[in-house]
Simulated assay, not measured.
Amino acid sequence: MKKDTLCIHAAAIEHNPTRAISMPIYQSATFVHPGVGQTAGYDYSRLQNPTREHLEKTVAQLEHGLDAMAFSTGMAALTMLMELFTPGDHIIASNDLYGGSHRLFDHISTKNGLSFSSIDTSDLAQIEQNINPRTKAIYVETPTNPMMNVTDIKAVCEIAKTHNLLVIVDNTFLTPYFQQPLSLGADVVLHSGTKYLGGHNDTLAGFLVVNDAELSAKLRFIYKTVGSCLAPFDSWLLLRGIKTLAIRMEKQQENALQIANWLKKQPKIKKVYYVGLPEHPAYEISTQQASGYGSMISFTVDQEKTACQLLEHIRIIQFAESLGGVETLMTYPMMQTHADLPQAEREAKGINECLLRLSVGIENAADLIADLEAAFI
């Protein structure tokens, strides 16, 4: 099946005696054993639940993976993933990441004995230079949040395999509809399902996807132990959201390209960061490893006053943290997603009082541009 058909029909419903088109919500914490030493396939919802299982199989198929695990949030997924590693292990990570990932690595994982080299993973030489005997994994976010840097996933995987390292890719921005890192050689794909997979800003979720049975077994053991699984109703909301993933991603990308080209022409805009613009330094790599460019745009304005004016005067576009929903949202990374980064580190990345991030929704692009234009006045 093609990707857009998979979004609707992936993972045929197995637990559906009524033949309902919508997967039933199995709102049960526990399940009855038919007899001693027997199981109906489900024992306790922390281990597995039919609704969550259907969602996990759907996401695994979309990512061309063997197994997917659904979590209560994206950060829950990343936190559990770190339990693969032991004190003393070293991880190479992209230096431009979602602020929550920085916070976890810098304040929790480091406390637990892991060490990190935060580098520009688009520079393959830097990756090679930072590999040491304790290195266990390379963690890549591409495109990055919020500076839209792009890493060549296949090239990183080739380096990793020569050193027996895991490659972990945060695929939140492009989703499996536009980018499939496992097919490029990655070992683990991470998603904040709250964003595009859910698509409606109405629930939180996270995913890990793998295509190796041994790695799946290790993660499943940790998963049932720490208990950060996604609830049945939230699993159903994600299933419902994924059904429209294809048409949402296409429309959002179409809108984003129009808005990015409009932003480039505005005198108060100093720089536009969108991987779908041919002048983006990684445009060719993006075109090779992904089938689309997504709908995330960051841009810098001429001064802090302009940034505040935009945030306070937009009307259709909403000033809110998060991304990937049907509504267009504008975020102030300095004060929201990346507020916990030390100022010097944040500004070195370009995350300052003049940087804004736009998650483009499915509204009419002309209305969104008119809203921006009015807010500039």
Rank of each mutant, 00 (worst) to 15 (best):
H107V: 13
F105P: 01
R134E: 15
T73S: 12
T58V: 06
S72W: 10
F71A: 07
N130W: 01
E128K: 15
P87H: 02
L78D: 04
G88Q: 10
F71H: 00
T58M: 01
S72A: 09
G113A: 04
T144R: 06
H107G: 14
H64C: 14
T110P: 10
L55P: 01
L114H: 07
L62E: 08
L55K: 00
N145A: 11
P87K: 09
R103I: 14
A76L: 03
H107F: 14
S94Y: 00
N130C: 02
V140Q: 00
S117G: 06
D120Q: 09
R52D: 00
F85C: 01
K57Q: 11
G65T: 07
I91Q: 02
I131F: 02
A76M: 03
I131P: 10
N95H: 08
A60I: 05
L55A: 05
L78G: 10
L62N: 02
D106W: 13
S101T: 13
D120W: 04
L97N: 05
H107Q: 15
Q129V: 09
L55V: 05
I131V: 09
E128T: 15
L104C: 03
A93K: 00
H107N: 14
S109P: 00
P133K: 04
S72G: 11
G88S: 13
F116C: 10
N132E: 10
